[in-house]
Amino acid sequence: MIPLSETIGIWLGAALTLCVLSFLYKDNPFFKFAEHLFVGISAGYWATLEYYNMFLPNLWEPLTQQGRLLLLVPFALGILLFSRFTKKFSWLSRWPMALVIGIYAGIAILGYMQGDLFPQIHANLRPLVTDNWLTSFNNILLTLGVITGLLYFFFSKEHKGALGGAAKVGIWFLMISFGASFGYTVMSRMSLLIGRVLFLLKDWLHLVN
């Protein structure tokens, strides 16, 4: 026996799914309703999560239960963010903004170096000649693709002559990469669609097992 709350939930989910799918016909009030509901619920959802996961454990509880008064500094800076709504004091909101942007810029420098730049270069340092011809071929292709791809992103010199030729080969590799990403995106969207159709046919209408 399915609990009543579950039944109501399935009907609600089905109704909202149909509202969104109705956009395939044309933009209509049902879709607009679902669209605005989605924005409202999502904003409320993330704000509530932020309240529980960030605000309470990082600010409110240490401040009120442990008396960590130093936290009044980020609290005051947080309040300054709201000065954006006044013309006279809006410049004050730049202070907390600058702190956050500075911290994340610092983190980004290290993060991209350690997480992307060096590991990717390191992973590409492969032997070009090995005992296995296929491995050699793959390694040569990979090295060629990365170097020519990077040359395509080099805009300090006009893409002419040898640089232009190499950049052209780089575009081919980039196109293959974009094609594969596109294929993957199509597949993921299709599986989401299949999931929604299955939900309607199985959970809601009980037409399939």
């Binding site: 991209y112 170096m113 992307d116 730049l117 990717q120 270069i121 992973a123 590409n124 793959n138 292709l141 990979l142 090295t143 060629l144 693709g145 990365v146 020519t148 791809g149 990077l150 395509y152 992103f153 780089g170 590799f173 980039l174 196109m175 293959i176 990469s177 974009f178 594969a180 990403s181």
Partner: peptide
């Protein structure tokens, strides 16, 4: 291989 080469170039360039 070819997809990874393109993707790696993008990742290094983006970094």
């Amino acid at each position: 291989v070819p997809q990874l080469a393109g993707k790696r170039a993008i990742m290094i360039g983006a970094a």
